[in-house]
């Protein structure tokens, strides 16, 4: 059976190093300044990984027009096998995607959540699960669970749809005696707004919102209105697209690994639709969506975390 090299590399990297790009785990939580506690903010290394994906994409854009060709696959695999070279990519620039969890931390602490984090948080193996490495995932998930348990973690706060769904609904099927509580920050923020703990100001810009598939079309728990409630609570002028809610559309991100051109075209198409609303900012709720849009020039895309961070009234009240 012919399996693309990129897929195999991904699998081997994850299984052997717990990191998609063979980097040291402490690169996953570069945003983390706190010690682990019972409750941690857990990104599953997703933000750090997506930062690399964004930068690698920009690099490939510079050197080729046809990123799906073989020689590039070998180039990519060269990078993958020698993981630390990726550090070159992440050592420059503002690292916005990578630093998103920092902002989430600040928000959650402001809300009053007693929260820590793990600098060396492991990758939870989402791509093993989605790309069909079922046998590997069966062995991998309990390993990740053990790492978290050994640090005394009891409760995870997630800030993206993939890690949330995986840790809350998929892991229990693969890990015996799984007892981690998984909470989504959107629920926490929404609750804090309605109880008056925090307040959002009306932003200077108009917004639209791109539903991430694993919220809007999740087969476990659908989160369609919750993020919108937060947006509405700010009083923002809010425009919707046709493809929203349960009929929302993917950003193209999931196939970036081996169909990069198609992935980009899908992102471009969705970006066009979002822009057709005339909104000045495109709100996303997933770092994969964010990077998909940023990769095709959608610089007006911001994560809801950034939206909250920017428009929250920090001064009044107490923690």
């Amino acid at each position: 059976m012919e399996v693309p090299r990129n897929l195999k590399l991904l699998r081997d990297n994850i299984v052997e190093t717990m990191h998609i790009f063979r980097l040291p785990l402490k690169d996953c939580g570069s945003w983390c300044r706190e010690a682990p506690r019972e409750t941690i903010l857990y990104t599953g290394c997703l933000n750090s990984t997506m930062e690399i994906v964004l930068r690698r994409g920009r690099f490939l854009d510079l050197v080729t027009k046809d990123p799906d060709r073989d020689f590039l696959a070998s180039l990519a695999s060269y990078f993958s096998r020698t993981g630390p070279l990726y550090r070159l990519f992440i050592s420059v620039g503002d690292g916005r995607v990578k630093e998103l969890p920092r902002k989430a931390m600040e928000i959650l602490r402001r809300v009053g959540v007693d929260i820590g984090c793990m600098r060396d948080e492991p990758y939870p193996g989402m791509l093993l699960y989605e790309f069909g490495f079922e046998d590997e995932f069966k062995g991998y998930a309990p390993k990740v669970y053990k790492v978290l348990k050994d640090r005394g973690v009891r409760r995870l706060v997630t800030i993206d749809p993939h890690v949330y769904e995986l840790m809350k609904y998929v892991y229990p099927e693969y890990v015996d005696g799984y007892d981690l509580e998984v909470v989504n920050y959107i629920d926490i923020v929404k609750e804090a707004i309605s109880s008056g703990k925090i307040r959002l100001e009306k932003p200077r810009y108009t917004v639209t919102y791109h539903d991430p598939c694993h919220y809007s079309k999740s087969r476990h728990r659908r989160m369609i209105e919750e993020p919108r409630d937060i947006i509405r609570a700010s009083g923002a002028e809010f425009m919707e697209t046709f493809r929203r809610g349960r009929f929302s559309m993917c950003c193209g991100g999931p196939i970036e690994t081996y169909f990069s051109r198609l992935s980009r075209e899908i992102a471009r198409r969705r970006l066009d639709e979002l822009r057709s609303t005339g909104a000045e900012r495109i709100l996303v709720a997933c770092p994969i969506c964010l990077v998909s849009f940023l990769s095709v020039g959608g610089s007006e895309s911001i994560d809801i975390i950034e939206f909250i961070y920017e428009n929250m009234v920090w001064g009044d009240g107490l923690v």
Binding site: V3, F131, G132, F133, E134, C213, K217, R219, F247, M249
Partner: peptide, 28 residues
């Protein structure tokens, strides 16, 4: 993309993304 737009509209309620994931697993 496993994004499930098909599953939402399918009159026969066929879990297309779910089956695709399982077939990937079988192939791998």
């Amino acid at each position: 993309l496993l994004d499930g737009r098909c599953f939402e509209i399918c009159p026969m309620d066929i879990d297309i993304p779910g089956i695709i994931r399982l077939l990937r697993a079988r192939a791998m």
